[in-house]
Amino acid sequence: MINIALQGAEFFAYHGFYPEEQKIGCRFLVDIAVGFEPPTDLKDGLHNTVDYEQLYIIACEEMKHSRKLIETVGQSITTRIRDKYPFIKTIQVTIKKLNPPLTGKVAYSSVTINYPPEK
Rank of each mutant, 00 (worst) to 15 (best):
54 Q>S: 11
43 K>T: 09
97 K>I: 00
68 K>Y: 04
5 A>S: 14
118 E>T: 13
53 E>L: 15
57 I>N: 06
48 N>M: 08
114 N>Q: 12
96 K>M: 03
7 Q>E: 15
114 N>E: 13
63 M>Y: 04
77 I>A: 04
86 P>T: 02
20 E>H: 09
111 V>I: 08
80 R>C: 03
108 Y>F: 13
43 K>Y: 06
111 V>N: 01
59 A>W: 01
2 I>C: 11
63 M>C: 06
30 V>K: 03
45 G>M: 14
15 H>K: 01
88 I>C: 15
107 A>F: 01
3 N>G: 15
58 I>G: 06
112 T>P: 09
21 E>P: 01
61 E>H: 07
85 Y>H: 07
7 Q>L: 13
35 G>A: 14
55 L>M: 11
72 T>M: 04
104 G>W: 02
77 I>T: 06
88 I>K: 15
39 P>F: 10
103 T>Y: 05
29 L>R: 07
26 C>N: 02
75 Q>V: 13
18 Y>D: 01
102 L>V: 08
64 K>H: 10
63 M>P: 04
116 P>S: 03
93 V>P: 13
3 N>Y: 15
29 L>W: 03
19 P>G: 00
118 E>V: 11
94 T>I: 09
64 K>Y: 05
61 E>W: 03
114 N>W: 08
49 T>K: 08
94 T>R: 08
14 Y>T: 04
69 L>D: 02
55 L>A: 12
6 L>N: 05
100 P>W: 01
39 P>V: 14
114 N>S: 08
40 T>E: 11
48 N>F: 12
13 A>R: 02
14 Y>S: 02
30 V>N: 01
106 V>P: 00
24 I>Q: 08
82 R>F: 13
24 I>S: 09
70 I>M: 00
1 M>Q: 10
47 H>S: 12
89 K>F: 10
28 F>Y: 14
37 E>T: 12
23 K>H: 14
85 Y>Q: 13
21 E>D: 00
59 A>Q: 05
111 V>T: 12
85 Y>G: 12
51 D>H: 05
28 F>M: 05
87 F>M: 10
71 E>G: 13
117 P>W: 05
83 D>E: 05
41 D>M: 12
101 P>V: 04
63 M>F: 04
17 F>S: 00
59 A>P: 04
91 I>F: 04
58 I>Y: 12
115 Y>P: 07
1 M>H: 07
60 C>G: 10
74 G>I: 01
46 L>I: 09
35 G>P: 10
